[in-house]
Amino acid sequence: MITRPFPFFSEGIRLDADLHLPDDNGAGAPYPVLIPSSGYQGLKVIHPERFARALTQRGYAVLAFDYRGFGLSEGERGRLAPQEWADDLRAAVDRAAAAEQLDADRIGLIGWGMGGGVVVAEAADDPRVRAVASLNGISDGRRSTRAMHDEESWNSLVERVAADRGHRAEHGRSEITSPWDIIRLDLDGRTDGYVGEELYKAPGFGSGVSLESADLLLRFSAEAVADRISPRPLLIIHGAENELHKPEEAEALYAAAKEPKQLKFLEGRGHTEWMFDDDPTFKSVVEDLDAFFGSAFAQERQPQPATADAH
């Protein structure tokens, strides 16, 4: 795999990014390009680079980036807004579509966790995206967040978010809280263990998040726009025992989307404990992704609904 810096701007904010290419001396150029969208607190050095290591071997270019406010990207620290992440992802598509080594007619998105909803939101109004894969994603921010909490912690979060709205209106800033006050990892032992042992290795992971971020998450819904991806294909893969983002999220996204669509549950697997380069489940998912995008890119581009260019 060959890696080079590939920064770009989103709404005037410089985002740190890398372009990962197959090590074939350019023989496969212009390359089909896949853009991974990280999940909550995600950084490009975690799962996006994991997908890059696996998928560049199969002839894809992979554009990995940090959202605004994370990693070495510019932007307000602690602000984690899926609506703005969709704008960042669209800017990544802009960057990829203009690069000589990349094939602007073969661009696909891979979303992980919260990013699984973000890719749907971005592709809904971006006909340049040929295919979308949502892995262990969220379909509705309020429902998925509520499912992570017990009654006491949920009521506390809702009350804090409501109070913060008034504070922001008066003082212009939001309270910073622990990211795990919003996303309750401790109720999912397998994910909690993986995060503590693996993800905290990435510098900056686990940093504080604003309560405004929680407010925005609770208002985010990928399923509300999922039908606009059609006639482009959507692949949904979800851990059947995912206790962080429940399987109901995958079912709701699938129900909201139009054909062509696929839904696959990973039996016996949770949210993220299998995300290692050499794990058989991860390797199987890579096989699925390769088959899905390979098929999508091989087909003739279908006419898009008139609403696809609305934004």
Rank of each mutant, 00 (worst) to 15 (best):
R4I: 05
P5H: 01
P5L: 02
F6S: 05
P7G: 00
S10L: 00
S10D: 06
E11F: 09
E11A: 15
D18I: 10
H20C: 11
N25T: 12
A29Q: 03
Y31K: 13
Y40T: 03
L43E: 00
K44F: 00
A52N: 01
A52K: 08
R53S: 13
A54E: 08
A54R: 09
A54D: 07
A61F: 00
F65G: 04
R68M: 10
G69E: 01
L72S: 15
R77F: 05
V93M: 04
D94G: 06
A96E: 09
A96T: 11
A99G: 08
E100K: 02
Q101V: 09
L102W: 03
A104Q: 05
A104C: 03
R106C: 06
G111V: 03
G117Q: 08
V119M: 05
A123N: 09
A123C: 05
D125T: 14
D126V: 00
P127I: 04
R130G: 11
R130W: 02
A131K: 06
S134T: 02
L135S: 03
L135N: 07
N136Q: 07
N136R: 06
G137C: 03
G141D: 02
R142A: 09
R143E: 11
S144P: 10
H149F: 02
D150P: 07
S153L: 05
S156N: 11
V161A: 11
A162K: 15
A163R: 15
A163P: 03
R168Q: 14
E175I: 10
I176A: 10
P179D: 02
W180V: 02
D186G: 08
G189R: 14
G189N: 12
R190S: 14
R190H: 13
Y194P: 13
G196I: 06
E198D: 12
A202R: 12
P203W: 04
F205V: 00
S207N: 11
S210R: 13
E212K: 14
E212S: 09
S213N: 03
S213W: 00
D215F: 02
F220H: 01
V225F: 01
A226L: 04
S230N: 01
P231A: 01
L235M: 13
A240G: 10
N242W: 12
H245L: 13
A250D: 05
A252K: 08
Y254E: 05
A256Y: 06
A256M: 06
E259W: 12
K261H: 02
L263T: 06
L263K: 01
R269D: 12
H271W: 08
W274K: 14
P280D: 11
T281A: 09
F282E: 14
V285N: 10
V286T: 14
D288T: 12
F293D: 04
F293V: 11
G294F: 11
G294L: 04
G294D: 05
S295E: 15
A296R: 00
R301K: 14
R301V: 11
P303I: 04
A306M: 13
A306Y: 10
